[in-house]
Amino acid sequence: MGDRRGGGANGRLALLGRLIDDEPAVDGSLGVTAGRLERLCTVLARVLPASGAGVSVFTEGRIEGGTAATWGPDSRAIEELQHSLGEGPCIDAFTSRRPVLEPDLLGRGIQRWPAYGPAAHAYGVGAVFALPLQVGGARLGALGIYRAEPGPLAALTFSQAITFAEIAVGLLIDGQDADGGTVSGVDDLVAYRAEVYQAQGMVMVDLGVTLSEAMARLRGFAYSDGRPLSDVAHDVLAGILQLNRDTL
């Protein structure tokens, strides 16, 4: 069942982050965040492997969303199907706040999504897996993973997919700020420290902003201060540090 220690997950996060940083951009016209997300999809498809991948972003409280980045043949069209049809794995993952794993798109997938299922299958998709891009109560979007062959994701592959989703969350959060760090600079996302989450809630109240913006401010402060996020969170909890609108 894989490496039990935190080092394994953090090691993988750093490794995949470096692969994404080193990946040459395909479409130079994309913005910073969209470009990084596209490279993430490219690396994901190669590493897992998958025939395609896409990131969709949604506005909190609504299922209308848009495609932020994709990789793979027809993957933008496949990702867009969900937005035009109003149903599909990414929408379900976003609304249910859980992964949606459908290894048999032509079978159960069609019962689940009567419009999306056949349409995606027409593009050669046999299995779809969607992961919510979220941290607790903060939701940003969903990561869609497409395979031509039906069949489940192996446990290790799922674990890798979760790491890609965590990196995508970091990119989307940092994208709210003008300039985040590099992908491999993403830190502490798998630390799951209670203190980091508690600090996010505190900063949300201190600044009167949304939870995802509070996460962006905390991460931005940690980057600019050159300190681990867990240190900054500790200071917020201890009352040593209180972010205000002038802190950044």
């Binding site: 979220q134 607790g136 109560g137 809630g201 949300m204 109240v205 939870l211």
Partner: peptide
């Protein structure tokens, strides 16, 4: 993920 949300809410309420 539900557990993470509870920690975030603890922080918000504490503040």
């Amino acid at each position: 993920n539900s557990r993470i949300t509870i920690e975030q809410a603890k922080g918000a309420l504490a503040r």
